[in-house]
Amino acid sequence: MAEPTWQKSTHSEEGSACVEISPTPTTIRIRDSKHPTGPHLAVPPAAWSEFVRTLNSPRARRGTPPT
């Protein structure tokens, strides 16, 4: 199995700690950039898409918790 290719958000500043992802057609791997050799999460692409959609929602931008 090939090593995952990790990528940071384009909104991340150089040298800052953030979440990194490694997408494949069947899984999105998620890790903490401060601990690159530590554990990571693996979720289906649909779950990742819903997470990103929720973060980008007007409600999330206002800081209103989901109901």
Rank of each mutant, 00 (worst) to 15 (best):
C18A: 07
T37E: 13
E20P: 01
R59D: 10
S9A: 08
E3L: 14
P65M: 07
P36I: 02
V43Y: 02
R61P: 03
S33N: 08
R53T: 13
T64K: 15
G38E: 04
E50G: 11
P39R: 06
H35L: 11
N56V: 07
P23T: 03
E3V: 09
V19I: 12
V43S: 02
F51H: 08
A2M: 15
S33I: 03
I28C: 02
E14G: 11
T27K: 07
R62F: 09
T64D: 13
G15Q: 05
W48Q: 01
W6A: 03
I30H: 01
P36L: 03
T5P: 08
C18P: 04
P36S: 05
A46Y: 01
R29M: 11
G38K: 00
S49Y: 05
G15K: 04
P45N: 08
R59C: 10
S49D: 11
F51M: 05
T37N: 14
P58Q: 06
P66T: 06
P25E: 11
H40W: 07
E13W: 10
H11M: 15
I21K: 01
W48M: 03
S12V: 10
H40P: 01
A46H: 06
T5C: 15
S12T: 14
V43Q: 02
V19L: 11
S12L: 10
S57C: 10
S57M: 10
H40G: 04
H35P: 02
A47E: 05
L41S: 04
L41C: 07
T24F: 06
R62I: 09
P25F: 09
D32L: 01
S57N: 10
T54I: 08
I28N: 00
C18N: 03
D32E: 04
S22L: 05
N56D: 13
A42P: 01
P25V: 09
G63Y: 00
T37D: 14
G15S: 07
I28K: 00
G15Y: 02
W6D: 02
V52I: 09
K8I: 07
T10H: 08
L55T: 10
A42M: 08
F51D: 06
E13L: 14
P58S: 07
A17M: 14
V19W: 05
S22K: 00
L41H: 05
T27E: 09
W48F: 09
T26L: 12
W48H: 01
L55I: 12
S16M: 09
M1T: 13
V43E: 00
P23C: 05
A46G: 05
T64S: 12
V43G: 00
P25S: 11
I21E: 06
S33P: 00
G15D: 10
E20G: 00
H11Y: 14
